[in-house]
Simulated scan of single mutants.
Amino acid sequence: MSTNAYLSFLVIGVVLVLIDGQIIYRSGRRYLESSYGDPAAGASMTRLVTVLFHLATLGVLALVSTINLGGDITGVVARIGVLLLILAIAHGITLAVLSRIRGEQEVEAVVQRGPRPQRPEPEQQGPTVTPVPGQPGTYPDVSPSLENRSPYSAQ
């Protein structure tokens, strides 16, 4: 592979990693800030996860660039394809990490806040439904038919 093809792959790869990292950072920050009361803590955790994403994917980019996958154009296209697949996997793992962090923050918030106070249920002051004329008891099973032609009757 020529130097121009190698450098073009590296430039395209770095741009893709940086764009994906920025998407993860911006979306992840809003995602964690909405679940946690402290926006600075959400931004801090997102920054740490995003830095890990950048380091891991740039390292994989460097390793993929050394693999011989063919000629100039076909080699670059093949490497970009492999890089995109690896970026998709890394993106999914990062989303799973952010989701787990959010879940832990929500549990911590519930623990700090304590259980919600239970509202007392109102006592029933009579039957749940209005009794139907002709049926015994305060809780009728089925309403009687209008003309006693259906399978349901009051008799």
Rank of each mutant, 00 (worst) to 15 (best):
A5I: 02
L7R: 11
F9C: 03
F9N: 01
V11I: 13
I12M: 08
G13N: 06
V14N: 03
V15E: 13
V15R: 01
V17I: 15
L18D: 05
Q22P: 00
I23W: 01
I23G: 14
R29H: 04
R30T: 06
R30M: 07
R30L: 03
Y31T: 00
Y31A: 01
Y31E: 00
D38S: 14
D38H: 15
D38E: 08
A40F: 13
A41Y: 12
A41E: 14
G42Y: 14
A43M: 11
M45H: 14
T50H: 12
F53K: 11
H54R: 05
T57Q: 13
G59H: 08
V60M: 11
V60A: 12
V60C: 08
L63Y: 08
V64K: 05
L69R: 06
G70M: 00
G71M: 10
G71V: 07
T74K: 08
G75S: 04
G75W: 03
I80K: 01
G81N: 06
V82L: 15
L83M: 11
L84H: 05
L85A: 14
L85N: 08
I89H: 03
I93E: 05
T94S: 15
L95C: 10
L98H: 06
S99N: 10
R100K: 12
R100Q: 10
I101C: 09
I101A: 12
R102A: 15
G103L: 05
A109Q: 05
V110N: 11
V110I: 09
V110R: 13
V111F: 03
G114I: 07
R116H: 00
P117L: 13
P117T: 05
P120T: 00
P122H: 00
E123A: 09
G126E: 01
P127W: 00
T128K: 06
T130G: 03
T130K: 06
P131T: 00
V132M: 06
P133K: 07
P133F: 08
G134H: 03
T138M: 08
Y139H: 15
Y139W: 12
P140M: 03
D141S: 13
V142E: 10
V142D: 04
S145I: 04
E147H: 09
E147Q: 08
N148M: 11
R149Q: 04
Y152R: 07
Y152K: 09
S153I: 07
A154Q: 12
